[in-house]
């Protein structure tokens, strides 16, 4: 898959410069309107084969979850967002998680993480053998605008990790 970063990069730098006042003022609609989204005509496709009951699943959330006791929170100040990710173990409990994401209402996820990150439902389905296995590690992102770092550094690293874990299907839940 080709991602045209040569075009994106100068457009993004210009967007950062022009959008900073709106970002600082919290005018999110304005900055989203102007953001130079990477638009591709092609849609990558890997045919799904096999049975869920024999496969390993993993979750990716952009809900800004992190482990309160052992991981740093995401940067919620920068206009670039935060391109890093946190590894969330499948054994995670509601009370283990903090949420660092300034651009959505956390109140429902604070009551029940499964409303955006249904890890407990996946574990139930694993016990019932509806799916073969839930991977030991899930991945949490937060708000990100800096697609250059995301595409060149972070995502390739996550792909290496999910491949090493033998993940057959990735389920992504944006907020």
């Amino acid at each position: 898959m080709t991602i045209d970063l040569k075009k994106f990069k100068p457009d993004y730098e210009k967007w950062v410069e022009e959008s900073l006042p709106d970002y600082r003022a919290g005018n999110m609609k304005e900055i989203v309107k102007k953001y130079p989204f990477i638009v591709s005509k092609d849609v990558p496709w890997t045919p799904y084969r096999g049975k869920p009951s024999e496969q390993t699943f993993a979750l990716v959330t952009s809900g800004g979850f992190y482990l309160k006791d052992s991981q740093p929170a995401f940067d919620t100040e920068s206009i670039h967002g935060d391109t890093s990710y946190r590894e969330i173990p499948k054994t995670v409990r509601q009370e283990d998680l903090g949420i660092a994401h300034a651009h959505y209402d956390h109140s429902l996820a604070e009551q029940d993480i499964n409303t955006i990150f249904p890890i407990h439902r996946f574990i139930e389905l694993e016990k019932e053998e509806v799916i073969g296995r839930q991977a030991d590690t899930q991945y949490s992102f937060s708000y990100v605008n800096d697609a250059v770092t995301l595409v060149t550094k972070t995502v390739p690293e996550v792909i290496r990790r999910i491949k090493a874990q033998g993940v057959d299907v990735l389920f992504l839940v944006p907020v």
Binding site: S40, L150, V151, V173, P174
Partner: peptide, 18 residues
Amino acid sequence: MGLIQRMVEAEGIPTISM
């Protein structure tokens, strides 16, 4: 998330999103 999903799918792992 769209970029992440598309990159993973392009690497040979089927994906689905909400």
